[in-house]
Amino acid sequence: MTTPLAMRTFHFKIYRYDPDKDAKPYMQDISVVCDPMDKKLLDAMVKLKAKDDSLSFRRSCREGVCGSDAMNINGKNGLACLTDLAAFPEGKPIVLRPLPGLPVVRDLIVDMTQFFKQYLSIKPYLVNDDNLPERERLQSPEDREELNGLYECIMCACCTTACPSFWWNPDKFVGPAGLLAAYRFIADTRDQATNERLDNLEDPYRLFRCHTIMNCVDVCPKGLNPTKAIGKIKEMLVQRAV
């Protein structure tokens, strides 16, 4: 039996910035009392928001599906709705910052335009010029298996904004989330654009800025492995070249 979480006060240090009002970003000290029903960091943040309604952050599904509440939690990117409150050590404030490497719109909300631009650049849709089948394009269970670990991505951007290569070249390097998605379509037996997709990634920036630092794997809240997907694409590029 697990002991229920008792009433507990959580102290926060939160990055605040309202470009209309603040000359510079600052860290706000604020605390909130949580009861045993508050399980996740997002629960505490909703209470914080009730206390100080100027605090801005995105959230929607509160169960790790929509990918909107990604932020930098004690120095590591993650989803507030999947982060256990009970796991935070007593006596140390929880430090919340916006995802690094993207422009801040306000407080914990970042401008994801560049992230989605890179995602769109890999054509994240099935390309198949065959006549439309009567019902659906079938795959064998083995072929379908190949998409596991790829299709589950919720585009939260935890990985891409943790990647130094993306920080340095956000306009040219696709980033781990985009590359994972790229491989999701390369690996799809129903897709017919494999060569074009590989062409699109063969230059020294789009994919090869990845230096296998593996920050992406470390932070993915869905337990996905973009580095592995990137490795598979590299393998195919080499196969094609030699």
Binding site: K172, D199, E202, D203, Y205, F208
Partner: peptide, 8 residues
């Protein structure tokens, strides 16, 4: 982007 020497 699109210089094709990345893989080489």
């Amino acid at each position: 982007v699109g210089a094709h020497y990345g893989v080489k």
